[in-house]
């Protein structure tokens, strides 16, 4: 049996829209990954969870406008603890230029905007983990 990819999935902060993050979690599970679903959590808690769960990937969902503050904060906290090997993915509602900035300037591995097919997300996580 191949090693399962472990993914920590969280809704960022106070954002209330759980539909997307839960749906993606279910699809990742069905693709054979182990998903540790956190519900709503803040960056410190998310990083703590990723450490304790020995996660390969963190998935963050943001539809509440906090993507540019809380998303990069997760990456920063990981770096501070020497955990750069944990890749951070994001999804949600945001301006395309914010998505580009998260990827290019803030160390987010990939941002998935609305309408992304689930298979694209699954493949994206798989190939990133395989490279690491």
């Amino acid at each position: 049996m191949e090693r399962k990819i472990r993914v920590v999935m969280a809704k960022l902060g106070l954002d209330i829209h759980w539909r997307g993050v839960y749906l993606v979690s279910q699809f990742l599970k069905d693709s054979g990954m182990e998903v540790i679903y956190l519900g709503n959590k803040f960056p410190e808690q998310i990083v703590e969870a990723a450490v304790e769960e020995d996660a390969d990937v963190i998935g963050l969902s943001s539809l509440g406008g906090s993507h540019l503050t809380l998303g990069p904060k997760v990456v920063r906290l990981l770096k501070e603890r020497g955990l750069d090997h944990i890749k951070v993915f994001m999804g949600g509602v945001m301006a395309p230029k914010d998505a580009r900035s998260l990827e290019e300037e803030h160390g987010i591995a990939k941002v998935y905007l609305p309408d992304t097919p689930m298979q694209v997300i699954i493949d994206g996580i798989r190939s990133t983990v395989a490279l690491a």
Binding site: M1, G32, Y37
Partner: peptide, 19 residues
């Protein structure tokens, strides 16, 4: 875990609310 995919959705941490 799921008997079909071998994947799992582990949700116990949702209730961990120490902040």
């Amino acid at each position: 875990s799921s008997p079909f995919s071998g994947g799992a959705l582990l949700g116990d941490r949702v209730r961990v609310n120490i902040k």
